[in-house]
Every structure is written in structure tokens, then in C-alpha cells.
Design a protein around this nucleic acid. Structure first.
Length: 597
RNA sequence: GGUCGGGUAGCUCAGCUGGAUAGAGCAACAGCCUUCUAAGCUGUGGGUCAAGGGUUCGAAUCCCUUCCCGAUCACCA
């Protein structure tokens, strides 16, 4: 039980004894005291004024007296208006630090075989182009969310649905066939996903030229788009694919494999992975079957042209197409099939889709459709809807070449980190491999932190012209603090200082140190909150605050030069605990921390 | 037009289950390295929390109206 919970109980006892009311959790508002006032924890007494029928100051005074008499942790208190500021005994903070030191898994819970199973879908790329910054946000949020949920004691299956079929892939295939001259990743030295993406762009370029040409011959834009030879041929290719044409299937497999090899590299570098990957080429048939089943049961209806629809007007939505007139499936159909397979494969208690907020409507519809098809978990699916990454000129658009490529961005970040490191010259006695490793950790750390510190639900801005910072509220700032602590601990070891496992609670510590421990002690609550709200940003902002606080302490207090050995040992263990929490929290964000930089 | 988001310092973002004088970083300016890593620390300036109304002892936070921005309502995924 932490100090807030303990004191909360005593406050309830206090108002019960003093004013004869049973206070609920909501009315007991305890929070960290603002730094301009004396104290560690503050109780807001306004909610009790009705019962006390006394002035705020008087009420606070009475509750304060009760707390000092009945809560051993409370040393004294002061009252400012309706705020009761409690000073907690220093011994309590030392004891709290002892608890943190003793717990190797501090802040995290361990899932058991009985824990609920959460399946988290994220990444979900198309196989016609490389990953860009938008995918990066998705991947980082998804993988971090999985780590956080596990730290909250849940079992997690990380999954990915690869959209490996459809007209967009056929476009790349066709362009490669027509203009590729047999180019391969080996022959060109290009990463497979980039190579395939190049042909997707090539298709679009040639296609637009054809549309323009047809329009100059007098066709309407709509007709021209439909009749352009390239589009006609791509559609024929899609049809051949569905019919199982051997040649088309072979090309499809070849090019998809190029893409997968490229994705694997990018995923590995980002530090994301999956327990189970689904492919739409293997789920869309199940989806079609399920839709046809729904059609027979009268859940859906067929129009004159043969297409199949769901009527959602009773739910306040529109009508939704599920099968085209030619019987081919759409996105929604595939998602139904995928969902079915997943629940067949795993005993899922909750399904979470990490997908951008542009698809809010899609998931609203999916939830209803699954429910109507008789899947009892349909209603409870969670769409973890995150905001878009915007550029100064607006949304990223593949065709307009305004995308920020994931691989390029990571390269740039690592390069910048190396440059910075060389300029500062702190790693002069390291091998080149070590220098590169630090640059990798810091560069990726800067990128990941930059993205994860923002509230997932909000759109965020990225300006490619301005490089991501390494100072201030950034990943490297936090990593730097960790490296410094490691450095101090290394020096302590060199000096032959041995650290006790447990500190004497009579030790006199400063307010600064007490407050630092108070921050450390709140880490488990932050992790729980992040899991509840699906927000890695809460962890990022917490670590930043913690680190800022530590840096201030580090500046104002000596550690190794402290004359009193007990105090020196305390400060070393305090620093060590900060490093431990920083490493743990950054770990939940998928960010590594270096031991020197 | 319907639905759903969002608008906080010059810029990027916290704060939003109502609590004290709205916070950080970047940018600007001024200090701090013979002392544990200056990717750091300290300070200054910078705000009509989009606007108006309401609820409340108390509103950036909750409710209503208006304005602005975005997403979506595809036989794309």
C-alpha cells in the first residue's frame, strides 16, 4: 500500500470521527504539494465543508490535527486556505526507497496464465510501398502499448494484418512487368520494399499521363480514369490473381517477398515484432463466406446488380458495401474474416486495433457487423484511434511524394546523433563500433521519444526541415541522465565503495531528496494509468519530470564527494533507483538507454 | 450537409476524473565547467487557455451557443 492509499484511509476516518460522514474516494483529493508551499502531500478540504459547517481553514486544521495524531507518517502540516499541506516524515521516504531497491520488477506486474488475454493489432502495412512516418507512429504506439499492458499484468498477443492483396499491389506488379526490365533488389541494390514502392509511383505517373491523354481526346475525367489502359490491365491482373492464375501468383509472391524482406529490416531496427502475422490473402475468403452466411440469415441484403450490403441506417449510419457485384471482397469483408480466424486461434478476452483516427467510422461499422453476425466480442472491440502525423504543408501523401520515409528518417536520426557525439567528443576512448552503437541508441531514442511523448489521440506536427532535437524534453536528455548516473556508479565501484542493500531509516535527508523518492514511488501508479488509458505519453512525461528533478539534485548535491558515508551511500542508491526507473520506463516505450554517451 | 475529433506562449507540446499564482521544451536574452559527463543547471521576458454565456465556494478542465481547423460519410485500404 502506498502513502496516498494509507492517508486516504485515515482522512476518511478523520471526517467520519469529526463530522460523521462516510467520504468516498472522489471526495478525498490527495495530490503532491505544489513546490511553492511547504509539504509533500496536499488534501483539498473543500468537499468536507458541507459536513463540517466550518470555514475551510478551521476544517483543514481539525483534519490536520487528526492526521498528526493518527497517521504515523505525518510529521506536521500547514493550512493555506482550503488546502491542507502535510509534511511526511523523512523516514517514510527512506523506507519507500528501500522498497524500491528491493523490488527488481518495481512498477510492473507479472502476467500469469490466468491473466486476461489481449490481442493487439498494429502496423498493418500494404505491400506496395515502404513504411513511412505514419506507420512509424503506429508501430511505436502499438509495440509500446503491448509492453505497457504486459507491465499491467495482462497477457498480450502482438499481431499484424498484412494487406498483401488488392488492386494497389497489382499496380506495382504491372508497372514492374512493363517497365522493370527484370530489376531485382539484388541487381539494383535497393531494399525490396523501396523497389516495389518505386514501381507503384511509376504506375501512378504513367497512369496519370494516360488519363490526361484520354481527356484531351474528349473523355470525361471519370471515364478517362476508368478507361486508361494501365488501369484496365491492373484490374485484369487482380481478376487473374483471384482466379489463381499461375503466372500472376508467381509474380505476386516474388514481389511480396521482396517487400517482406524490406519490412523485416525496418521492423528490426525500430524494435518491433509480432507473435502472429495474418495475411489478408488468407483471410478474405473466410470473410466472404461469413458475409454470405449473413446474407442467408437475412442480416445483409443483395442489390439488383448482385452486390451485397449491410443496412446500418437503424444505427444512425449509412449502408455499407460488403461484396462487389462481381463477388470480390472489400476491406470490411477481409476484416470480418480476420477477426473470425483470430478468435478461433486464441482465447481472446479483448481485441485492440491500433489504427489511425481516419478509420473511426470503419471500426464503428465493424463492431456492429461482427455483433450482428453473432460474434459476442464484436461490441467490445477497442479501436485505439491515434492522430495523424502532419507535415507543415498538411497530410502526407504517397503519390505527391510528401511522405517521410521510415528508413531515411532513422538513418538521419542516427547520423545526427553520431555527429553530435563526435562534436562533444566524450567517447574518444571508445571503439568505432561502440560509438556507432551509442549513436544508434540515441538517434532512435530521439525519434521514438519525439513521437511517443505526444498524446496518442492528437494529431502531431513533424517538420522535416527542422531536425528532431537532442536537448530539452527529448529522448537523449533522458538517456544522458541515465549515462551520467551509470558513470557515477562506475566511479563509486572504482573507489571501492560497497553499497548496502538497505538504508537506515533514521538517516536525515533533504527535502529535495525526499521529493525525488516521492516521484520514484509514483512510478507504479503511472504504469497502471498508462495501461488504463492506453497512453505511452503518460510514461514519457513522467520520466521527463523525474529526470529533470534528478538533474537538479545532481547539480546541487555532491554524491561521491559527500563526507558522510551513510549519506553518500544513500545518494548512490537514490541515483541507482532513478536509473532503474528510467531504464524501466524507457523500456516500456521501446527506448534503450546507454551506460555512457 | 450528417457524424466524430481538435483550438493552451512566436513554434512543438503538457495540464482536461473541476482546486492554490496555467506549466515544460525549442527559439531570444543573462549567468554557471581547475569540482561526480555542460546532450546539463539557474534566471529573465513571453498567455484574452478561439469567442460568448451557464453550472460551482472554485472552470483551461463540465454544459450550451458561435467561430475556425481537421477527419470521415468510397464498389480505396
Amino acid at each position: 500500500m502506498n502513502i496516498e492509499e494509507k492517508l486516504s484511509a485515515v482522512v476518511k476516518a478523520a471526517v467520519s470521527a469529526l463530522y460523521g460522514i462516510e467520504a468516498d474516494d472522489k471526495s478525498v483529493q490527495l495530490s503532491a504539494t505544489r513546490k511553492e508551499f511547504e509539504g509533500d502531500l496536499t488534501l483539498v478540504v473543500f468537499p468536507f465543508l458541507k459536513a463540517s459547517k466550518k470555514k475551510p481553514e478551521e476544517t483543514a486544521q481539525e483534519i490536520g490535527d487528526y492526521l498528526v495524531a493518527n497517521a504515523s507518517e505525518v510529521e506536521k502540516f500547514n493550512v493555506v486556505k482550503g488546502f491542507l499541506n502535510m509534511v511526511i516524515k523523512k523516514g517514510h521516504w527512506v523506507s519507500a526507497l528501500n522498497n524500491i531497491l528491493a523490488d527488481d520488477n518495481f512498477g510492473k506486474k507479472t502476467p500469469t496464465p490466468e491473466s486476461p488475454l489481449y490481442m493487439v493489432e498494429y502496423s498493418s502495412p500494404n505491400t506496395n510501398k515502404p513504411l513511412h512516418l505514419g506507420h512509424v507512429r503506429n508501430n511505436l504506439l502499438g509495440s509500446s502499448l503491448c509492453r505497457i499492458l504486459e507491465a499491467c499484468g495482462l497477457r498480450v498477443v502482438k499481431t499484424n494484418i498484412v494487406n498483401d492483396r488488392g488492386i494497389h499491389i497489382c499496380k506495382s506488379m504491372l508497372a514492374w512487368k512493363l517497365f522493370g526490365n527484370g530489376e531485382t533488389p539484388e541487381s539494383s541494390g535497393k531494399k525490396g520494399d523501396h523497389l516495389v514502392g518505386d514501381y507503384y509511383v511509376k504506375f501512378d505517373k504513367e497512369y496519370r499521363a494516360q488519363v490526361k491523354e484520354l481527356m484531351s481526346q474528349g473523355q470525361s475525367e471519370e471515364d478517362a480514369k476508368k478507361n486508361a489502359p494501365l488501369m484496365v490491365e491492373a484490374q485484369q491482373m487482380l481478376k487473374k490473381w483471384e482466379d489463381g492464375d499461375a503466372e500472376v501468383r508467381a509474380l505476386w509472391e516474388k514481389m511480396n517477398n521482396w517487400v517482406y524482406a524490406g519490412f523485416d529490416e525496418t521492423y528490426k531496427r525500430m524494435g518491433v515484432s509480432f507473435d502472429k502475422i495474418y495475411y489478408e490473402s488468407q483471410t478474405y475468403l473466410d470473410g466472404k463466406a461469413k458475409v454470405n452466411e449473413g446474407l442467408e440469415k437475412g442480416v445483409f441484403y443483395r442489390r439488383e446488380d448482385g452486390s451485397v450490403w449491410a443496412d446500418l441506417t437503424k444505427d444512425g449510419l449509412d449502408e455499407k458495401l460488403l461484396l462487389r457485384a462481381d463477388g470480390t471482397s472489400v476491406y470490411m469483408t477481409q476484416d470480418i474474416g480476420t477477426a473470425q480466424q483470430r478468435f478461433r486461434d486464441y482465447d481472446i478476452s479483448r481485441m485492440i486495433y491500433v489504427v489511425g483516427n481516419e478509420q473511426n467510422y470503419h471500426f464503428q461499422v465493424l463492431s456492429i457487423l461482427l455483433d450482428r453476425l453473432g460474434f459476442k466480442w464484436g461490441k467490445d472491440l477497442v479501436h485505439f484511434s491515434y492522430g495523424m502525423v502532419e507535415l507543415p504543408e498538411g497530410k502526407m501523401k504517397s503519390r505527391e511524394g510528401t511522405v517521410v520515409d521510415a528508413d531515411d528518417l532513422m538513418d538521419k536520426m542516427v547520423e545526427d546523433a553520431k555527429q553530435m557525439s563526435l562534436e562533444l567528443g566524450k567517447l574518444q576512448d571508445c571503439s568505432e563500433a561502440e560509438v556507432d552503437e551509442v549513436a544508434r541508441i540515441c538517434g532512435l531514442g530521439a525519434l521514438k521519444y519525439f513521437i511517443l511523448k505526444v498524446d496518442p489521440r492528437k494529431n502531431m506536427m513533424f517538420d522535416p526541415k527542422e531536425s528532431i532535437d537532442f536537448n530539452g524534453n527529448t529522448g537523449p536528455f533522458i538517456q544522458y541522465t541515465h549515462a551520467r548516473i551509470c558513470s557515477v556508479l562506475r566511479k563509486a565501484a572504482e573507489m571501492g565503495i560497497t553499497l548496502p542493500n538497505k538504508l537506515n531509516e533514521d538517516l536525515q535527508i533533504s527535502d529535495t531528496e525526499g521529493m525525488l523518492i516521492q516521484s520514484l514511488a509514483s512510478y507504479p501508479d503511472v504504469v497502471a494509468q498508462a495501461g488504463k488509458e492506453f497512453s505511452p505519453a503518460l510514461i514519457a512525461n513522467y520520466i521527463y519530470d523525474l529526470v529533470k528533478q534528478f538533474n537538479s539534485f545532481y547539480h546541487d548535491f555532491s554524491i561521491l564527494k559527500e563526507g558522510n558515508e551513510d549519506v553518500r551511500a544513500f545518494r548512490l542508491l537514490l541515483s541507482k533507483s532513478v536509473a532503474k526507473v528510467v531504464k524501466s520506463g524507457m523500456g516500456l516505450l521501446g527506448i534503450e538507454v546507454p551506460e555512457r554517451m
